[in-house]
Every structure is written in C-alpha cells, then in structure tokens.
Design a protein around this nucleic acid. Structure first.
Length: 289
DNA sequence: ATGGCGTGAGTTTCACGA
C-alpha cells in the first residue's frame, strides 16, 4: 500500500499538478492539506476525476483557508473530521480528518502555523497538538499521522538553524509537543530511512529558495510500530516541486508491505491442515482424444 | 534592506503562510 501526504496550497490551483501526479505515482491513500475549498466545492471540482481513478474521498474543508482530505482506494471507513477536544481560533478550523484505510487508521493533519512564539496562535498550536496526541493515543494500534505539522523536528530539518533561532517551527516547546506525540510509539519514517541526508519538504516560493535547496522538513509521515515495520520506501517527491505552478510543499511518499495478518491469508498452512506430501496430489488428467 | 511569491476573497488591497 502506497501512502502519500501533500500540502497542495489550494487544490483548485493545483489541479493541473495533482491529477498527473496521481496518475504517475499511483498512491493508494493520499492525505491532502491546505485544500482551501468547502466540501461541496471540493466534490464539484474533483469528485468525478477522483472517482474515475478509483478513489473514495473524505474531505473536510472551509471556503478560504486550511482544509484537509483523504483520498483512498484501499477502503475509507469510520471517517472522523476534526480533533476531539481541540481548541478553535476562535472557531473550529478544518485541520484534521481521519479514516481507516487498508486496516490502518490514517490521520491527515494540518497543524496550526503558530505565527510567532509570543502569539495566541502559538498557544493554540501547542494545545491543538496536545489534543491530537490524545486522539491518536486512544485510537487503534495501527496508525499513521500524515501531514504538515509546521514543526521542523530537529536542526537538521532546517536549511539554516541560526536563521530560524527563536522563530516558530523550531522552538523547544513545539519540538517537545511533537516528541510527546511520537512518544506514543510513532516513527518518523522518512528520517529513519534517511538519517543523515539533507531532506526538505517545503521551500519558500521566493528568492529561488527551491533552486538553492533552502528549505525545511515540516511534512511528516509518522507510523506506529506495526506499520513502521512494514515500510519499504519513504521519500520526498521533489519532482512535484519543480516546473510550472507547483505547491510550495513536496509530497512525501511511503510504501508499505502487505500487513502480515491482512486478507492475503496465512503465509504457512495451520498445523491442522498440513501441506500434502510431495507427489501425493493427483493432477487433473488432460482429456484424451 | 523583513524584501521576496503565491493564494483566496473580492477590489483599487488585505490576511495568511513558515
């Protein structure tokens, strides 16, 4: 199962990039952030194109800002919008949607930006993260939290840590809130796959930042133990940040092996039904004449 | 030198982003 997450920065503007990307990468589950569309507008814009590609859709949006979605062709069950117990700013914002896809509880999240560390928005960000942690803690064992967390987990996830010192996305309380979420047993699967490499997912549109590879890694795929054990590949699709009309974020793509207890059945026959001895099976005879 | 670029709503710019 291929799972991807992408902050598209307006799904309407990104349509000419999103549809070809779906056809090229063929993800089974896609978490989107910053869709910037109300749910009906999302369905009107994308419903037919996604259905044609076999995707079911759980969209949770607003007319102007924020907005998240999950697209899945691996099942889409028990959809829940929002984060129980999370604060608003002041109203509830469309920043999370969860669904069970292929046996995994998938969360598509767009964590509040935080703006500046002395702001109400920053406190909102930390409280929102604490509420998300509770939802994940009380949820199924097989879980993935995918999305734009608006936190660079470590200094290696920022092109110039000195330039960001004291600013949002890198402060100790934000990193602590992310660490508390991860302490539930979630693995940062891209960093674990690329422990020493320069890996970013976001580059400012301005000043040739992408061209110079001056970015941040703030879009994460976090996977619980049993899911992390199935990771075959985990990478940032930088190609999607190139060319005409890109988002300022690149997608993150993770490939999972089949679940050991999935619907493919047992790998070996159970003891009560031993495999037949070699040579004991009669093959059907070809009809003669 | 706090610039720069892109987006949405809606209009002679503003709010937001990270």
């Amino acid at each position: 199962m291929r799972v991807a997450t992408w902050n598209v920065n307006s799904v309407k503007q990104r349509l000419p990039r999103l549809l070809p990307w779906l056809d090229q990468r063929r993800p089974d589950v896609v978490c989107l952030q910053e869709t910037k569309l109300a749910d009906q507008a999302f369905a009107d814009l994308l419903g037919e194109e996604l259905a044609r590609r076999g995707y079911e859709v759980a969209a949770h949006g607003e007319p102007r800002w924020n907005g998240v979605a999950i697209l899945s062709r691996a099942g889409l069950d028990d959809v829940v919008t929002g984060v129980a117990g999370a604060p608003g700013f002041p109203h509830q914002e469309a920043r999370a949607v969860a669904a069970t896809c292929g046996g995994v509880r998938v969360h598509s999240v767009y964590v509040p930006n935080g703006r500046t560390p002395d702001s109400d928005h920053y406190r909102y960000k930390l409280e929102w993260l604490a509420a998300l942690r509770e939802v994940v803690r009380l949820g199924p064992e097989e879980a993935m939290v995918c999305g734009d967390v608006n936190i660079a987990p470590a200094d290696a996830d920022v092109f110039d840590p000195a330039a960001y010192e004291g600013q949002t996305h890198v402060t100790a309380p934000e990193r602590a809130a992310l660490a508390e979420l991860r302490e539930l047993g979630l693995h940062d699967v891209v960093r674990e796959r690329w422990p020493e490499e320069r890996v970013f997912t976001y580059w400012d549109y301005r000043a040739g930042m992408f061209h110079k590879d001056l970015g941040m890694r703030i879009d994460l795929v976090l996977a619980s133990d049993p899911v992390a054990g199935r990771v075959r590949a985990a990478w940032v699709d930088r190609h999607a940040r190139k060319g005409t009309g890109p988002s300022d974020h690149a997608p993150v793509i993770v490939d999972l092996d089949e679940a050991p207890d999935g619907d493919i059945g047992p790998v070996v026959p159970p003891p009560s039904a031993p495999a037949p001895k070699r040579g004991s099976v009669k093959l059907p005879q070809a009809p003669s004449g």
